[in-house]
Design a protein around this nucleic acid. Structure first.
Lengths: 336, 336
DNA sequence: CTGAAAGCGCTAACAA
DNA sequence: TTGTTAGCGCTTTCAG
């Protein structure tokens, strides 16, 4: 247990006052080059590392950026994290995560945990905060970025896309490929999922091919096995279904396997489209169509916006729409 | 920006001294019930929340448990996180993550970041720390748990399993099912992967069925697409291969799809076994054999060990071996 | 450009 | 059981 080296010791070693060391460390250009050199040498010699708690207490602000996501096991969110990391790992900021489990109450609670640290910035997934959570965010006194989704009245900044429109685009693709009886597979049915469903529905209705009976959903979380079960239920009840828009890629993968088991050739008898375009989609047989969402990029952008604001630079537009693209692959090649 | 409510204000409101409030909050049983009641009322009335930085500075210890994992996108690690969360979410401890990207140098650096916060505990994945990192851990002055793996001389505590033995068990299963020319598919080839390979090799040699030419590996990270590519390369070079032990489930899934493309019936022409038993494995067609590793449980156990130590309770054995089980499914049903 | 004084909000140690 | 006195290590004024 090497006891902690303090600023004061560094100062003594360098023959200056503590505050000068503090300045040399935080804004090197505000101290004489030779003073700085002596300080740097002392820091290195003593192996000094600042105490984040002391700094936080003195400044009333922690060098922490809090991130609130619904799930740590869903690749959709972890990809955003990776983007954040990439952009923030060489800065003075630490990331701190909170997992909301899709529970608004948990989100509220974690927001409290973060807020009392007075974080440098906050990144939250989605736009479905409770009124209380939203109020907390609005008063947060730090940059806030909502990611994954766009919507009206951002708390502060926003980078995402319209889930409604993305689902509509996928549905349009299905129709354009010649499918006439498209269905919908959905799980968990959280607000984002429901907006995707709304997009599917709107587009299907516009094309005159919507049938509520071809929508199979469940409140349980998505999984490959769940996708298989949903497809079986749907095809059993509505055998005329000739394509499915799956709320995410896990469901789509499960639907593919179940189609195999039921003997439905994909894409001839059944078209399958997923959502998110995880890596596995392109490798499947047949390769699965999906909607590519730019998750990594969202993380990068969110981090940049926060950094810009913290550095007093122009963060650019407060709302960034990273429009997804439909990645058409063989699984929606069209009915035979 | 409601300005921060401090302990002193609560104390004033309750008509006691600050330290009494402090005690009432941390060890309620050390203050008179009626005093405590007054304090609780004041806390509620003012909406007081403690400042973690001030506490950390005063105690020289943060209520943070640091977690170091190689990847935030690999389900293998996020499942452990979920277990940690489950066990820790209702305690005073916050989790803080660091992603090492499989880079020992990054692990070392992040360890430094954590350590200077004087965390309450540390959880690190694996046993392959650099000597410097290991030294840091040994001097950490807090409980340390190595997870995911077991090995000789734990830094402190350990909960995991032998990757060598788990791979050997899977290989044994392949041989018992009648496969005589098993191959190996591996990616990234980090130390854990290499130990799995060693387990495969040892068991295959013991069964007289090992051929180094049937081992296809790549340094790039695992992916479904990568698994497909590896299988194609292997089957092209060594068409006699009748089964593959895949270093993880992504590779196995890719191998399955590639087998379909190449027209190799699974399991008759080619047996496939994965590793980790992700949810998708059981839902595949055919269902894929894998090795079930108890990742969630590892997280739970690690959290419990740390809590026990912090609470001064007996943490139980310092080394917990959560032996994996081979989940035999149709993909290793045996050669025709 | 550098320093002195004061204090961030909390808790350890001791005392009462 | 409760209070007093000092700080934890750093940074903010405000001077020099």
């Amino acid at each position: 247990m090497a006891k902690r080296v303090t600023l004061a010791e560094v100062a003594a070693q360098a023959g200056v006052s503590p505050i000068t060391v503090s300045r040399a460390l935080r804004r090197p250009d505000t101290v004489q080059p030779d003073t700085r050199a002596r300080i740097d040498a002392a820091v290195a010699a003593l192996g000094y590392v600042p105490d984040p708690a002391a700094r936080a207490l003195a400044t009333g602000r922690a060098d922490v950026i809090g991130v609130l996501i619904p799930s740590a096991t869903n690749a959709v969110f972890t990809d955003v994290l990776t983007g954040l990391y990439d952009e923030l790992s060489e800065t003075r900021f630490d990331l701190q995560y909170g997992i909301t489990r899709y529970e608004p109450a948990t989100e509220e609670k974690l927001l409290g945990v973060f807020l009392r640290q007075r974080p440098a910035g906050l990144i939250v997934a989605g736009i479905d905060q409770t009124p209380a959570a939203r109020r907390l965010l609005e008063r947060a006194d730090c940059p806030v970025v909502q990611v994954m989704e766009t919507g009206p009245d951002p708390v502060d900044m926003m980078v995402g896309f319209s889930h409604h429109d993305a689902a509509a685009a996928a549905t349009r693709h299905l129709i354009a490929q010649g499918y006439r009886n498209p269905g919908f597979l959905g799980a968990r049915m959280d607000p984002r999922t429901q907006r995707r469903f709304a997009g599917f529905r709107a587009e299907a209705e516009a094309g005159g091919v919507f049938d509520p009976e071809r929508c199979e959903t469940t409140p349980v979380p998505s999984s490959v096995g769940g996708g298989a079960a949903l497809l079986r239920a749907l095809m059993t009840r509505r055998p005329e279904t000739d394509a499915v828009f799956c709320n995410n890629d896990d469901l789509a993968m499960g639907a593919l396997f179940e189609a195999m088991r039921m003997g439905f050739p994909v894409p001839e008898r059944l078209g399958i489209c997923g959502f998110n375009d995880l890596e596995m989609m392109h490798a499947a047989e047949p390769a699965l169509t999906s909607v590519r969402t730019n998750r990594f990029e969202m993380g990068v952008r969110a981090a940049r916006m926060i950094r810009a604001r913290l550095d007093g630079r122009d963060p650019g537009p407060a709302l960034i729409d990273l429009k997804p693209q439909v990645q058409a692959r063989r699984s929606t090649g069209g009915p035979s």
